[in-house]
Amino acid sequence: MQTVGFIGLGAMGAPMAENVSDAGYPLVVYNRTRSRTEPFAERGEIVADSVREVAREADVVVVVVTDDEALEAVLEGDDGVLAGLTDGTIVLQMSTVTPAATEAAAEAVRDAGGQYVDAPVSGTVGPAEKGTLTVLAAGPDDLLGDVEGVLGAIGEPIVDCGAVGDGARMKLFVNLLLGDMIGAFAEALAFGTAQGLSYDDMQTVVEAGAVDSPLFSIKGENIAADDFEPRFPIDLQFKDLRYAVEEANDAGVPLPQTAAARETFSAASSMGHGGEDMAAVVKFFEQVAGLSVGDSES
């Protein structure tokens, strides 16, 4: 059985690691905030003092960090992953980063003697806890086969997206759509509220028609309950929209709706809501228009 290393035990990384452990894989874990490793120590898992130690002890190293800069920081340096790699160690990059960042990381890992799979996940904390994330895997077929068991413990389906970099591209595609949808939903709810419409009636109409979506049902309930516990924070959604717009600019593809959504999320973050769930983007409309959507308070 492969020993699996986990670097990053945040809201997503911790339940992913727990599911891999429950599937029978021995773990070695690391997180900058040491307290996040305590539940794993209590389970009898190894807690490493550095990411270099994780890379040295694990057959498969899973990286779940926030952005391009964090990925580079984890890999580089005297105590980085690259310094601890042994020949054949597989780095399984599961963060949301740009295609350029994951391709550069893959090259660096291969130069250090390791192997690399680009496999971000689609989904939030609930699916991460249930092991039902959608895995956007990219890399050589033989390597995908080598980590199939680990990926299967984390999510289903496992979508073979192509070569390294294509997993990152697919993740930006789906999170672009996610950001556009939740931004439009919040905007529509603010419009309806300003028109004097009942929040419950608006939800009923949405859920009964062609625009029905689990996203609108779940986030609608959260907004009504003033529940903005961060399943997927505004700051991370803004980061992903920023990455998507930058990629589109390079490709010469206009993204006017996504650019507008990016600015809405940026404004909500500037208002102090960056650490709240992405549904809290509704607070931007509440604060600017001076209204209260659902049962939430502006």
Rank of each mutant, 00 (worst) to 15 (best):
R56L: 06
L82E: 04
V74Y: 02
V47Q: 07
V74F: 05
E45Y: 11
V81D: 04
V61C: 01
V74C: 04
A55C: 09
T86K: 15
V63W: 05
L82S: 03
G84F: 03
V47E: 04
D59A: 00
V60H: 03
L71C: 11
D67K: 03
A83P: 10
D67Y: 12
V65D: 02
G44Y: 12
G80H: 06
V63Q: 02
V47L: 05
D68H: 07
D78W: 08
R52M: 09
L75G: 02
D59F: 12
V47P: 07
E69D: 15
R52F: 01
D78H: 07
V64F: 15
E53M: 08
R52Q: 13
L75E: 02
V47K: 07
E76D: 12
V61W: 04
V60M: 04
R43M: 13
D49E: 15
V81W: 11
D79W: 01
E57D: 14
A55T: 04
G80K: 06
A55I: 01
G84T: 02
E72P: 06
E69L: 13
A48T: 08
R56V: 01
V61P: 01
E76V: 05
A55V: 06
V51D: 00
R52S: 02
L82K: 00
V54W: 08
E57V: 14
A73P: 00
V64L: 15
V61Q: 03
A58L: 12
G77T: 09
G77D: 07
E72Q: 13
E69G: 14
S50A: 11
V74A: 15
T66R: 14
A70E: 14
A55R: 00
L82P: 04
A55F: 09
T66I: 14
E76A: 13
V61T: 05
T86R: 15
V54A: 02
S50R: 09
T86N: 14
E76C: 03
E45I: 11
V65N: 05
D79C: 07
G44M: 10
T66M: 15
A48I: 10
R52T: 07
I46D: 12
E45M: 13
V65S: 03
D79F: 01
V51P: 13
D59Y: 08
V62E: 00
E53N: 04
V81C: 01
S50G: 10
V60E: 00
E72L: 03
V74E: 03
R56G: 07
V47S: 05
A70K: 12
E57W: 10
L75F: 02
V65K: 01
V47F: 11
E57M: 15
S50D: 06
A55H: 08
E57L: 15
